[in-house]
């Protein structure tokens, strides 16, 4: 059951990433590029989880992908506010 859920999650994340990439292409707003990358990182996390079924002891290395995703989102927010201050 969990395998199925992981696959579904990864597929959704990839779809969301593609959508954000499309928004970035249309608007040239960096925020969407960063969100696209963030959701790609999230998709990668679940894909790797599914592909490798890592043991609990090494799993936390995979969480770095989740960390990357959230850091990218944070960068997107900071960038948006810094860019605004400059304009």
């Amino acid at each position: 059951m969990n395998d199925f859920l992981w696959g579904a999650i990864a597929a959704l994340c990839l779809g969301i990433a593609v959508r954000f990439a499309w928004f970035w292409r249309n608007t040239r707003d960096r925020l969407f590029a960063l969100f696209g990358l963030a959701f790609t990182a999230l998709a990668s996390y679940w894909i790797l989880l599914e592909a490798l079924h890592p043991a609990d002891e090494v799993r936390h290395w995979f969480y770095l992908l989740r960390l990357l995703a959230f850091v990218l989102i944070l960068v997107a927010i900071v960038d948006k506010n810094l860019a605004r201050r400059e304009s």
């Binding site: 928004f23 249309n26 608007t27 707003d29 925020l31 969407f32 997107a76 927010i77 948006k80 506010n81 605004r84």
Partner: peptide, 10 residues
């Protein structure tokens, strides 16, 4: 889409 992006203006 613009409202989504603008939401992140703190």
């Amino acid at each position: 889409i613009r409202d989504f992006a603008n939401a992140f203006h703190i």
